[in-house]
């Protein structure tokens, strides 16, 4: 394998790890509430702005921000679910999509109003440091983002498997009436799911601020990529989402090499997406069936 491809593979896996956290948030919300959140990427954007301003104004390191963001964005997600999303749970998908589209439009414009449409990026002392891995350059900040994202995905997985709340969430995802019948408080579960989902995506954003620009328009790309991943991995399937994310990350970075222009890299991802939607809507890893 030539060096450029090794480099592309490693970069792809790194960014794929971050995508995994974004997608896991989306798929958790979808799995538990059956809601498709078109405003997902906007929470990532606000996470990035939060970390950006915390750093430039107060000198708070983004990695510290990531820790603080967990309770903060969990609370934001909890509230948004309680106020905006709860009324449309169980309604038609069209209504849910339109509501979250409205939220996404509002959040983007709000960011433009508050932070202007300018692209910002964080300049950190350690931002451009790299190390050598078998001939490929690996950036410390990208590796850190990858590790944080993977760690959180794993933690979420353990939480869902081992704790009572986690098991209750999974019960909701499988069978709403059944969960209700065994005395699970669905409303609380929805809030927890949305809070966790939002916290995941916001932290993914924060983990990227050391090497990724911030702008009000940064969100939709991540929303779409997360959808691609979630569909690849099978809706509501967390390990599937992680695997799908790594695939998408690699497709994207290898795409940047083979496409006539690096900024066409997303083309491959979207084509893959449409093909999967058409031919394997249950995901690459899901069982064939209804």
């Amino acid at each position: 394998m030539s060096d450029v491809y090794l480099q592309a593979l490693i970069s792809g896996l790194m960014i794929g790890g971050v995508y995994a956290l974004v997608a896991v948030g989306l798929t958790l919300i979808f799995g538990v509430m059956d809601i498709i959140n078109f405003a997902h990427g906007e929470f990532l954007m606000f996470g990035m702005y939060g970390a950006f301003f915390a750093s430039v104004l107060f000198g708070i390191d983004p990695y510290l921000s990531a820790v603080l963001a967990l309770p903060l964005f969990f609370a934001i997600g909890w509230t948004v679910q309680g106020v905006l999303i709860r009324p449309v749970v169980g309604k038609s998908h069209a209504i849910q999509i339109l509501l979250t589209l409205g939220l996404s439009l509002l959040m983007q414009a709000l960011a433009q109003f508050l932070f202007s449409a300018d692209f910002q990026s964080l300049k950190l002392d350690y931002g451009s440091a790299t190390f050598d891995l078998g001939g490929a350059r690996v950036s410390y900040t990208r590796l850190a983002a990858f590790l944080i994202a993977m760690g959180l995905c794993a933690a979420l997985w353990v939480f869902l498997q081992r704790t009572d709340t986690g098991r209750a969430l999974r019960a909701c995802a499988e069978e709403h009436e059944g969960a209700l019948a065994v005395g699970i408080d669905l409303r609380r579960m929805y809030k927890i799911a949305f809070g966790l989902g939002i916290a995941c995506v916001a932290i993914a954003g924060i983990a990227m601020t050391p090497f990724f620009y911030v702008a009000p328009v940064v969100g939709p790309k991540f929303t779409l990529v997360a959808f691609v991943i979630v569909v690849l991995g099978g809706l509501g399937n967390i390990p599937g989402a992680v695997a799908g994310a790594l695939i998408v990350g690699v497709v994207e970075s290898v795409g940047a090499l083979v496409m006539p222009s690096p900024s066409l890299k997303d083309l491959g991802v979207y084509l893959l997406f449409i093909l999967v939607l058409l031919f394997r809507p249950q995901g690459l890893f899901g069982a064939k069936g209804s």
Partner: peptide, 20 residues
């Protein structure tokens, strides 16, 4: 007027308000 976008904020708000 900040960075602009107030009209779009309003559009987003209206969309959510109508949906709800």
């Amino acid at each position: 007027g900040g960075g602009g976008g107030l009209a779009i904020i309003l559009y987003g708000f209206l969309l959510m308000a109508v949906v709800l």
